[in-house]
Nucleic acid binder design. Structure first.
Lengths: 224, 224
DNA sequence: GAGATATGAATGAACG
DNA sequence: CGTTCATTCATATCTC
């Protein structure tokens, strides 16, 4: 277990007292990396099982290592290698922007399958406008008089309510569409903790549901 | 030091005209941080590849940046956010339901159930705890009379201020320690958008700095 | 300028 | 295999 990472010259006094502070992650020794790299560069990029075992035994001369470590190493090595390749291709195909600097730092990653909520298709400045633009007008903070109700544990309330926090206080919101005017009066606006106001229709009905556990702030719009 | 091994393929020559040596790390501009934070806080915590590209182009208006930089930023942001939650949760759990010494809590690293991101299940508890410690009493929302100040473009404010949002309005905070009482009066409390109040010392001086791009809410504590 | 902290970058370990 | 999470390393920044 105690494969011990690198001899760190720093002085974070730890070690001794920890009873079972397992070093969870394998840190390959320089020699081991050298061997692995040379194998990879020799063309063996995806060694079969028995080859992996042989490599592992080889590496063990320089420190504890498991078959799994070797397997993962090659997998990651392949993945990363390929990705780098792709990066370069994509980068060359993308030379469209005006700025003279294209920053060639290489390496990005990802390509996510499912995302939550696209940042809209709007133009570039839409976001900075969202932040700043949202407050072009005036808002004053609503005076919330609701009493705190924190004590009751947040259990799996099987009733159809969503637990959120409004102005710092726990609040059980009905799951359906929310009538802001009926609930809070004319000029009430709910602002998500990110600073983004929740959209309502022309009748003051919330267009989207509150999200469990999130923090919102109730403010009064001076524009309405 | 021993940085051998790792064939570091990165070619960090960024745009910043570093005369010679070791400027290997991207340093996001304040405006870029603002944009990134606002995207993250708006719910896009893990943008897919094409989104990343779009974001990168947006950021490039304020300085050289690569897709990889954006990718890493979101990765780190998620990771850090998560870990923080965990630490808070662990801390609060320690205080609430355990005899003096509980040494057997040990590890549960093996099973990391949570797969998606934010407030789910376990996180709810931390939120309620966070709020509970703070909201046992009463708060009323501060009446913010500050005029909106959004028009000014987010320029290269190299002055030592931090741009944040308070009650939805842009605000340039001085970098040093902040005197809450002098700034907002006696019972003012700043609450981070996560619901967590910012600690102050007995003189009402903020114990920690505001963080660029974050959203805060100014409330009046009824306890003080 | 040393120490502490924040955070960009890298990579081992998994998941689907 | 592609993607994502967790941990670690390195450096930029802040503090005294």
């Amino acid at each position: 277990m105690s494969m011990e990472g690198r001899s760190n010259g720093s002085s974070p006094g730890d070690a001794a007292a920890a009873p079972a502070a397992v070093r969870s992650r394998w840190t390959p020794k320089p020699e081991q990396i050298l061997i692995l790299e040379s194998i990879f560069n020799s063309g063996t990029v995806n060694p079969p099982k028995d080859e992996t075992v042989r490599i592992r035994k080889l590496l063990e001369k320089f420190g504890a290592v498991s078959d799994a470590n070797v397997f993962y190493w090659f997998q990651n090595r392949r993945s990363r290698s390929r990705r780098r390749q792709r990066e370069l291709q994509a980068a060359s195909a993308l030379a469209s922007s005006s700025p003279p600097y294209s920053s060639s730092t290489a390496r990005s990653t990802s390509a996510s399958p499912s995302s939550s909520w696209p940042v809209a298709d709007e133009d570039l400045l839409s976001i900075s406008h969202r932040m700043g633009g949202f407050m072009e007008g005036n808002y004053s903070i609503f005076n919330c008089t609701k009493q705190p109700d924190q004590y009751s544990p947040i259990n799996e309330s099987i009733d159809n309510t969503i637990t959120v926090f409004i102005n710092g206080m726990r609040w059980e919101a009905p799951r359906g569409p929310l009538d802001m005017r009926a609930m809070f009066g004319q000029s009430a606006v709910l602002v998500h903790s990110s600073g983004q106001p929740l959209p309502v229709d022309e009748h003051g009905i919330l267009l989207q549901s509150l999200q469990m556990g999130e923090s919102y702030f109730l403010v009064r719009s001076l524009l309405l």
